[in-house]
Computed example of a mutant assay.
Amino acid sequence: MANSDPICPLCDRPIPEGVGSLHHLIPKLKGGKGGPTVLLHQICHKEVHATLTEAELARNFNTIEALRAHPRLNNFLNWVRKRPPGFRSKVPGKRRVR
C-alpha cells in the first residue's frame, strides 16, 4: 500500500490500485451525468447501490454525509472499517429486498 493511495470518503480506508470505483453523487439517469463524482472502494460502492434506489440517491442521499447517516450503510461502514483496504467480498452480492 502506497502512501499516495486515495482515501475512501465513506469508510476512510485507503483505496489500493484496482479496488476503486467512481460513484456519481447524483445518478447519471437522474441528471447527474457530468456532475460530481467520488472514488469509493468497489465494496462500498456496491453496498450503496444495493441499499438505495437511483431515485433515493438523487433525492435524499447525494452527499457523503447523507450516505454515512443511512442506518444500513452506517452499519456496513462500521463493519468494513475493520477489514484491510483491499478487502473484497467473496460472495457475489445481490440487491436486498427493502
Rank of each mutant, 00 (worst) to 15 (best):
I26M: 07
R59V: 06
N60T: 07
I26H: 08
R95H: 12
H45Q: 08
G32L: 02
K33M: 09
K90R: 14
R98H: 10
K82Q: 15
V38Y: 08
L73Y: 11
L40I: 05
L73R: 08
R88V: 13
H23F: 06
V48N: 08
K28G: 04
H41N: 08
A55L: 12
P71T: 08
N60P: 02
L77W: 01
H70C: 01
N75L: 13
N78L: 15
E54H: 11
F76M: 04
V48F: 09
H24S: 12
H49C: 04
L29N: 14
R81H: 03
I43N: 01
P92G: 02
K28Y: 00
A66P: 09
N62H: 15
G35C: 03
F87N: 04
F76H: 15
P84Q: 14
T37D: 02
P71H: 12
P36Y: 03
D12R: 15
S21A: 12
H70A: 01
N78G: 13
L25H: 07
R68I: 03
P27L: 11
L22E: 03
P84E: 15
D5G: 05
K82D: 15
S4T: 15
K82F: 02
R88P: 00
R72Q: 13
H45L: 06
R95T: 07
S4E: 14
A2F: 12
G31N: 11
A69V: 06
T63P: 04
R13C: 10
N62S: 13
I15H: 07
T37A: 01
T53R: 09
P85Y: 12
I7G: 10
P27M: 12
R98I: 00
G35I: 02
P6V: 00
P71Q: 08
T63G: 07
T51K: 00
A69D: 02
P84W: 01
R98T: 01
N74Y: 11
V48M: 07
V91C: 04
S4M: 01
D12Y: 00
G93Q: 14
G18I: 11
V97K: 04
K82R: 09
N62K: 05
N60F: 11
K30I: 01
H23M: 03
P92N: 11
E65G: 05
R68C: 05
I43S: 06
A2H: 14
L22A: 06
C11W: 00
H70S: 02
G20M: 06
R98K: 11
P84H: 09
D5P: 03
G35H: 09
K46W: 13
P36L: 01
C44V: 05
I26T: 15
L77M: 10
V91Y: 04
G93E: 12
C8D: 12
K46H: 12
A66N: 05
H23K: 11
R83E: 15
I43K: 01
I64P: 00
R96Y: 13
L29W: 00
E54F: 00
K28D: 14
P6D: 09
L39T: 11
G32P: 08
I64L: 10
R59Q: 05
C8R: 07
I15Q: 09
G35F: 03
